[in-house]
Design a binder for these strands. Structure first.
Length: 473
RNA sequence: CGGGCUGUGGCGCAGUUUGGUUAGCGCGCUUGACUGGGGGUCAAGAGGUCGGGAGUUCAAAUCUCCCCAGCCCGACCA
């Protein structure tokens, strides 16, 4: 009991990838699927994903986009209409050649992304400048055959949201791509996930296949590596030309559309785990949590504790808390406390006979592990307030953890050194082709370009930009 | 595609070199008792075509051959 008990998880500092695997298993988040590279998302993790979907979907709708659904199967010929697009995606395509027992005349591709099908239909729907902008989104699964899969971070099939828009002008398309990045993605990640993200532009080599500009939200994980959490692309007129998305303007002249696409995926689950997790497991920020508080019956010898705990859970629910009652008193207290910690439930309310006798409960917060006693009557208000505190504290600590590992440097050598443990901010003018080569051989890449004060490049001259360099997932 | 390694209850492994009776161990699971404020203790259980096939042998997890699957490193890719 005391002392020499094996840790619940492999410590993060000992073996980070192993720790990640342990969290997936012990917190009952996911399993590997039977086909290599696929994953099974278990109920607890799926509940978190549903919360992500709800929050992101609300923001997407506020940005004016409407949901629709396009087919899983795409004619192979569609992909081929945009040269860079097909070149970028062909190595990771899953292609169906047999259907209904017969060889297909034209193979169909399992969508790796839907620019092409959606482009085809947008072209059909857009006739006039009055049809613009056309703002669509779909929630779907996509398939990109992966050789080095990792659950949530890189799987052959994953769930995501892909937005596709068409605009009358380049400026309008650019503004919208930026708006999505800032007001949908960054806002969600910072406000709900409590993960501070850098916004920036990808360098040409890292752009989406077929894009003229790729914007990104980059987060730092607990081991100092970067994770691309979301992207928003300006597609210029590449897809508009390939699919003939054109319209008549107010002067009766034919014009070509400008399009964008943007997405976030189940990869965010991996980001959540690696940005907030600790040696006791996952830590879920309250605004995301499907279960914000668990009321834990410590023990119940005379049958009086469970009803009191249930009543407390009801009052928490009435106060707007997403709460769950754990009255499995036949399982040891320690076991259950550990389980909820592994799952990262932000607040745990412990109720036992001793507490009831004293007219109080013990309230434990997951983020920093502290416990306080609380008068029974005032618990709902206290928990509501505490959830806000936890949310704020998690963002602060994640931001501090990132900033401590972020260094301003002025040489490639120093950047390589700094990238061993975190992010290096290097003047972009110092990054020439040989420098990219050198960094690449150390698995370091330019994650994004930003202005000096951390904003999107916009029209800032290239030699005033900062390149954020890091190892990445 | 090249090199290396591994397949044994749900998970992690031992046993294979030197064939030998009912194939073990830890975790998990079931049942019960005692417990209970941080993975509690004890006891009794359930669960295995030893990756697949062929062969050698009185006898194969163990030796031989073929096949399959997975993992790691390299290459490639993002």
């Amino acid at each position: 009991m005391a002392g020499g008990k094996a840790p619940v998880l492999t410590p993060r500092s000992e073996d980070f990838p192993r720790w990640y695997q342990d969290v997936l298993n012990k917190a009952e988040l996911a399993d590997n699927g039977p086909v290599r590279g696929t994953m099974v998302i278990r109920p607890y993790a799926y509940a978190l994903w549903e919360r992500m979907v709800a929050e992101v979907d609300t923001r997407i709708k506020a940005a004016g986009a409407e949901n629709a659904y396009f087919p899983l199967f795409i004619p192979e010929s569609y992909l081929q209409r945009e040269a860079e697009h097909v070149e970028g995606f062909s190595p990771e395509l899953a292609i169906v050649t047999v259907g209904g027992g017969k060889e297909l005349e034209e193979p169909v591709v399992v969508r790796p992304t839907s620019e092409t099908v959606i482009g085809e239909f947008m072209a059909k729907w857009i006739q006039s400048y009055r049809d613009l902008p056309l703002l669509l989104n779909q929630w779907a699964n996509v398939v990109r055959w992966e050789l080095r899969p990792r659950v949530f971070l890189r799987t052959s099939e994953f769930l995501w949201q892909e937005g596709h828009t068409a605009h009358a002008t380049e400026a309008d398309a650019r503004d919208y791509a930026e708006f999505i990045l800032r007001s949908v993605y960054r806002d969600f990640m910072v406000e709900v996930l409590a993960i501070p993200v850098l916004v920036g532009a990808k360098i040409a080599e890292e752009r989406f296949a077929g894009a003229t500009n790729t914007l990104t939200c980059e987060a730092m994980m607990g081991d100092g590596k970067a994770l691309q959490m979301g992207t928003s692309h300006e597609l210029g007129q590449n897809f508009a030309r390939a699919f003939d998305m054109s319209y008549l303007d107010e002067h009766g002249a034919q014009q070509m559309c400008w399009t964008t696409s943007w997405g976030v995926s189940t990869r965010m689950m991996g980001g959540l785990i690696m940005a907030h997790g600790d040696d006791a497991g996952l830590r879920v920020p309250p605004r995301l949590a499907a279960t914000q508080a668990v009321v834990l019956v410590v023990r119940d010898d005379d049958g009086s504790v469970t009803p009191a705990a249930a009543e407390l859970a009801s009052s928490l629910e009435r106060a707007g808390v997403r709460v769950r009652l754990d009255d499995r008193v036949s399982t040891g207290f320690g076991r259950r406390a550990t389980e909820w910690e592994l799952k990262g439930v932000p607040v745990r309310v412990e109720v036992g006979p001793r507490d009831l006798a004293d007219g109080q409960v013990v309230v434990a917060r997951r983020d920093d592990g502290t416990k306080v006693t609380q008068p029974l009557g005032g618990t709902p208000e206290a928990v509501v307030a505490l959830l806000d505190d936890v949310q704020a504290a998690m963002l602060v600590s994640a931001t501090e953890a990132r900033d401590v590992r972020t260094v301003d440097v002025d040489s490639v050598d120093d950047a390589l050194e700094a990238a061993r443990t975190g992010f290096a901010r290097l003047p972009w003018r110092l990054v020439d082709a040989p420098a990219i080569q050198r960094m690449g051989s150390s698995a370091v890449t330019v994650r994004c370009l930003q202005t000096v004060d951390g904003d999107l490049p916009g029209t800032t001259p290239a030699d005033e930009l900062v390149a954020v360099c890091a190892r990445s997932y």
